[in-house]
Structure formats: C-alpha cells, structure tokens
Design a protein around this nucleic acid. Structure first.
Lengths: 444, 444
DNA sequence: CAAGGGGTAACCCCCGCC
DNA sequence: GGCGGGGGTTACCCCTTG
C-alpha cells in the first residue's frame, strides 16, 4: 500500500511540475495493482454522445452535457462514483478533455462551465455517497489555427521536464514545429472523451487516489461528419414493391459523399430479415439537407399485401444511423386491383386498425432496431391533418401519401406520430433507431 | 464651351486633391448644360443584375461581370459609348463602385480585374467607335468590420480638403467616429451600382469630359437577401383544382421570413388572369433550401379539364421572382372519372401532343411573364426518365407525378425540359420568369 | 489557369422560457 | 436577464470543369 502511494505522489508531482497542464498518463502502472485494495472510479452515468461545441466567441451559457439517459422530464448528468476508498479525506473529481483515441491524449479543447478553470479542468467534490455529478459541462471549441501552436508549446514543455536527456536524437525546434503541424492535422476536433480523475488535496498539493477513467466519446453536434443523423420529413412513406419510386427526404446536415439511405425489415423479434439501399447520386443531395432518392425494390416484388419496413439514414464512416421511419411496400397495381375495389366500400378506419394490430407485436422487441412501440389508432385518432406538436413538427399525417397505386387519395398511406406517448419509455431512448410511437395506417 | 471646360477642370483637380479617392459628384451641374454640345456617356450593355462578390482572401479569378444579354454561346460585357465627343484626344473610361441609392455614394467595395487599380478603379481606353467594353470586372467584398474605418477616413479626408471652414459646427473626432459607425450600418453591402466616367489625360492630369453615369444595380449573388431566386426541383407539378395539395420544393437559399410561393395564370398574350399564394409557415422552410407548401385552390374549383398555371418564388422585399414552373390544376376526381376511363385507351403520346398544342400559342408573348417557348413532344421525346443534362440536372420527368386522381402512375403528369433547344432565344433571357423550353404533358 | 461552384469555420444573433 | 437551445451570416477555403 505504501509503495502504491509513492507511485501516486510521484505521478502527481511530476504532472504538476509541467506547468499545471496535467495529463492523464493513462495510469497503466496503477491499473495493474490489485483490484481489492485500489480505489476505483466508475462511471454511473455516461454523457450524451453529442453536444454542440461552442467557440470562445459564443459567449454565455448554452446548456451543458446531459447524461445518456437524460430526458425532457428527468434530466441526468455525467456522474462518477469512487469505489474502494476508505480514507476520510475529502476527494475531488476532476474532469478534463482527451482525444478519442485508443490511447487518449490531452485535447486542445476545454471543458467550460460552473466548476471549470481556465485550463478546461472541472473539479467537483465527492459527496458523502462517493458520487460526483457534473451538471454544467460545456465543450469549448479551440480554433483550428490555434492548434499547432498549442501542441508545439506542449511538446516544448514536455521536453524541458524530461531534461532533453531522455530524448535520444536531439530534435531541432523546427522539426518539433513540423511535428506539431502534423499532429494538429491528425487531431479530431469533433470528438472527445472526458477524463475523470480522483484527487485529495493537502498543503496545496494534489494527490491522485485512483487511476483516471475515460468516458465514451462525445461528438460535436454541429459538424456534418459527426452530427446526429435525422430524417425530418419525407413526401411519402410508401411505394411499390418493385422499387424505383422517387421520394423527397428532408434531413439535418449530411455529407453527400458519406451518406446512404438504408431500407430494412425486421421480424417481430427485431432481427433483420432484409436490407437494401436507396438509389441516388451526389447531385441528388440538395445543399446537405434534402435528398431525392429512388426506393430499392423489395426482396419479393410479387407480394400480395403490403409489407412494412423502415428507412433510415446511414453514415458508413462511423457506422451511425438515424432513427428509422416506417415505410410500406405495396403490391403491384394489377395484383391489388380486384381487392382494392372491394375494399373501398369498407370503412377506412376499420381496415386501418386491422393492419396496425398485425404490427403491434413488434412492440416489445429490442436489440439492433432499438426500442419502439406502436399504438392503436384509438390512441392517436385525435391527431388531425397537419396538426403540430409543441416543437412545431408536423405530427399529423406525413405529406402526400397516395402511392400511385389506387385512387383513395391521401388516406391510403398515413404515418401518424402520436404526441402524448412520446416520453418516458425506458433507458435506451438514445439508442433507439426507430421513430418512437409511430403508427402506420394501411387503408387499401 | 470654354466656361464648361473650366467647370470640368475644377472638378477633376478637386477630386484628385482628395488623395485620389475620386467620387462622382453626380454631375448635376453638367447635366443641366445643353445636350447638344455636351459629350454624353451612354450604357450600351448593362451588367448582369447579379454576381457573386468575392472576398480579398478568395484569390484568383472567378470570372467577371457579364452583360445583361450575355448567354452561354455569346458572352457580352458591360459596354458604354461616348456620344457628342468631337476632339481627337484619346478618351479613357473609368468604372468604379457606388452605392445603390438615389444619390449614389462611393462604395467601400472595389472593382477588381484586368484594368483595375488598388483603389477599385478600372480604366479602359475608348476604341475608335467611341465604345469601351469592360471584360473582366469582379467585385471585391470589403469585410463588414473594415467599413466604419474606411468611412471614417473618408470623412476626415473630406474635412481636410474643405479646410474645415465649410463645416459650420466643428465636429469632434468622436462624433465623426459615431457617424461613420452609423453610416456603416446603413450601407448596403450586397448591392452596388457601377459609375462610368470619361476622362482625357494631359500632363499627368486627368480631365473629365462628360458627366458620370450609373449602371443599374448589381446584387451580390451569395447573399440570401439578394441572391437569385430559383426553384431547383419539385416533387410534383400538378394537383387538384381544390388546392391543399402538399408539395415539396427544393430551391436555392431563401430567407424564410421573406419568401412567398406564387401561383399565377396568364392568357395567351401573357396577361395575368389569376394569382394566388401557396400556404406554408416559417417552420415549413427547411434550412433555407426546401419548402413544403400546400397549393392554393384554383379560382374555379369545378373545372372540367386540366388548367395550366405557373408556380414561382417571390420575394416581396425587392419584388424579385424566380422563373415560373408550369403547374397543372386537375379536375375533381369524380368529374374526371368517366373521361379518364375512356381516355386511358388512347395512346399517351397522342393525347400529350394535343394538350401541348393548346399551349404553344403562348410562345410569342412578352411583358410581365417574360419570354418563354414551348416545344412539341416530337422535339423532346428523346429525353428519357431521369436522364441528366450536362449540368447534372434532372431533365427527364420531374419526380413523382401521379396527382392522387387516377391510377395511370407517373406518366399522367410529366414535365420535360428539353435540352437541345436551351439556347439563343432572344435578348430578354435574363428577365424571363418562365422556365425556358419546358413542356408539360397531360396524359389523362 | 479561368470560371464557376459548394462546403466549412468561426461567429453572431434569435427565440421561448423561467 | 440570462439560460438553454437553435438558425443564419460572414469570411474563407476548397473542388470541379473546360
């Protein structure tokens, strides 16, 4: 135990000697010591995977990082707990930003907020239950042009500390400059990890009491290469099983070179039965926020009744995808023709509910396609054409829906997003890939 | 005549004495002199009404101002002619930028290009036929932050020249600063006029030989408040006469607070018969480049056959509108039902040509709706589904076209833009509000 | 390279809500 | 008034094509 403390003290003094720009040296040496005796930090609540980084010039508070399970009603925040700590000395947890790499390095960006200092370190005291919550962590985006300079200065400082004797080839300042330039180019400015470290303070000195741990990555919401993928609106939610139906899709910023539109079908357990990708070119991506695509053919072009699948945006580079929107493949016209004419006399509502109940056993699935639930027409029949929810989104039927296969006008393919059920349905909300509480009517 | 030359010489010496930042003092005094004896500048070719202004940092050439009648095949450039000039001394024409105001003031932006100097003055010699053509005029965008300083310096220089005695109240430098700040805010940085002046040079002195004239305004193509309005794509080009059809429209950047969608109908002489505006809210404008709107009802909701009107974007602030796209109002379903079933047996192509010939007498109209021409199907039947022209635009049929009124799928409402006819159709090209050489098929 | 574009970085400001 | 968001502008940077 004594030996361990010595190691810790060495680390802290060393790290402070380099002008207070402390780094988490990943604590490999500590991690190897016995789990039974070593205090350990644990992340109780991870941060959300995305926040808009702010420039220094964007003064004022713009809201901090929430927890991954945060919701409109019940906000959570990044939270850590220190385990196996048995002393009575007050412990502080320090959070700071590191690169999103296998071996995280100190980032040029900084944490900012209530408990943060100029260097981007946020320190909060551990409460009695050994828990610390970070309620106000913003991420300060350090301008691209400043990056090489910052890295250069860090390198010089490190060199000084190591008395240069540690460095075999005596590097000229010029080569250090060049190295900094290269490193600056390599640094991903749109993704960071948060490093948490536990400290005790004594006589103006800080002593680490555990090895540092890193949060999951937090991406920059404003960057088109890491921002959230989101389908905002489509002009139709159905098409023929033969595919090649033209669809207008409005979305949040995407990179036209890095975006696909994925159609997929799952069974009632959420297992994927089929997938295919929509057809479009870079020229069909309109200013990053709209895509005109053609649907892929369904795996069976001779289906006799409608099949429900999902559409989602997909970014191969980082494997991200948007929530899925229900999409209905319809039988060929001539197959439908006889049926259609009979059906038309039946109440639209009745036939709609019929089809919904077919799908509602999807309600309890999980895994890849995430949590989602369907609700019966009775629950959402109060939503009317073009009604809007509090966020001014269209929650009535989504756009023009006739799929060029019959003459029943709009009512033949609606997508209704019920509003009043849109909250509090479990911890995996953020991972859900399907639009929540959506309902598709088939009125053939 | 001698007296007149004196006036001119005074003006030129005066204007040069203020450190070569010469202004056109609008030449009111000159304009009043006899038209018979005074040399006069005339604009033979106005500049286009829009160009993308370039920042100093956007180095290199990006193409200059063309003339208003310029076309892909035959480029024209701003051109002026000096009339009533009878001396043999070589005349030079100088162009420079002025504000787009009733009483134009020297602008902070500068002309740049082959014959331009650092101050933004472009000087070209008059040719033997008394004509000067400006082939390479770019507009340099001077940053917002620099504007107050520039205006401040100009004010100081003016004050010095006027020996302060001209100014009744001796203004403190502070109030000059404030005035500059105010003027800077008022200056429209996205619209300029070009001032043309004729000079002769003698012994390193320049002498104006005519009063200055100003071009029509040239707006900044990149500003969303003055850029060109353009409909890029729509998901359908027809709808029921009753209106309320949802349409997705992709466009170039618009300001959601300053944009309307106008439907209008003209008779064969181009006179307006009817207009109405589409229904949408600010929330339906998606990131400035897409609008989801609902069609207005046609003036007669009980039409028995299709009616062709036009859609265009309209910006009330400056009265600008985009080219019009043909849009077809269709009769109510039950009205059409009987007709439709009979028609379906007729060849689609035949019925298409029929309807086109109805419209083709629009070809020679002019005035408000501008020049446009229709071409028969025979001319453009080579365009195929989703084919693209050299600019990668869709020139095949535009999107999904079934208008929820019959089951004839896409073919029932096409818009084909013929490619090979897309040139050389007259001097008023830039004013045309209708999409050129477009053709609408009605296949009922 | 000229002649056009589209996209990004950095910044500025707007709302609705306590 | 300032928080918690969000959209839009400014200035800049780059890419296509001939």
């Amino acid at each position: 135990m004594f030996k361990w403390i010595l190691v810790v003290v060495y680390r802290v003094v060393y790290s402070h000697s380099i002008r207070n720009i402390s780094r988490c040296p990943c604590g490999q040496n500590l991690r190897n010591s016995s789990r039974f005796s070593t205090p350990q930090l644990k992340i109780l609540e991870q941060p959300t995977n995305r926040i808009r980084y702010r420039y220094r010039s964007e003064k004022g508070s713009h809201g901090g990082l929430t927890g991954e399970n945060s919701s409109q009603n019940k906000k959570t925040y990044p939270t850590v707990k220190l385990e196996n700590y048995h002393s009575t000395a007050q412990v502080y947890i320090r959070a700071s930003l590191y690169t999103n790499e296998e071996r995280p390095k100190s980032h040029v960006h900084k944490l900012m907020g209530r408990h943060c200092n100029e260097e981007g370190h946020c320190t909060v005291p551990l409460s009695d239950n050994m828990i610390a919550t970070f309620q106000n962590l913003g991420i300060l985006f350090v301008g691209k042009k400043e990056v090489p300079d910052i890295l250069y200065r860090r390198k010089l400082e490190e060199t000084q500390v190591l008395h240069t004797s540690f460095i075999s080839a005596n590097p000229s300042l010029l080569s250090v400059r060049e190295e900094s330039e290269r490193d600056a180019k390599d640094m991903n400015l749109n993704s960071v990890k948060i490093c948490f470290e536990a400290f005790v303070y004594e006589n103006d000195m800080s002593y680490a009491v555990s090895s540092p741990i890193f949060s999951r990555p937090v991406a920059n919401q404003k960057s088109p290469d890491s921002g959230e993928l989101k389908i905002v609106r489509m002009d139709k939610y159905c098409g023929p099983a033969t595919g090649d139906e033209e669809v207008f899709l409005l979305c949040e910023k995407v990179n036209k070179k890095e975006i696909k539109i994925r159609f997929f079908e799952t069974d009632s357990d959420g297992h994927q039965l089929w997938e295919s990708f929509a057809n479009f070119t870079e020229a069909d991506v309109h200013h990053q926020v709209a895509i005109v695509f053609r649907t892929p053919p369904y795996r069976d072009q001779n289906i006799k009744s409608s099949v429900q699948v999902y559409v989602q945006l997909f970014r191969p580079r980082d494997g991200e995808y948007s929530e899925g929107r229900p999409f209905t493949y319809k039988p060929k016209e001539h197959d439908l023709d006889g049926v259609e004419k009979k059906r038309r006399k039946i109440s639209h509502y009745n036939s709609g509910v019929e089809d919904i109940s077919n799908n509602s056993n999807n309600g309890g699935n999980s895994g890849f396609v995430g949590n989602h639930s369907f609700t019966s027409l009775a629950d959402s029949s109060h939503t009317t054409q073009s009604s809007r929810d509090s966020n001014n989104n269209n929650i009535g039927y989504y756009g023009h829906s006739s799929c060029s296969h019959d003459s029943t006008k709009r009512e033949n393919c609606l997508q209704i997003k019920s509003n009043h059920l849109n909250r509090n349905y479990g911890p995996n909300r953020r991972k859900a890939n399907l639009i929540e509480n959506s309902i598709t009517l088939f009125v053939n």
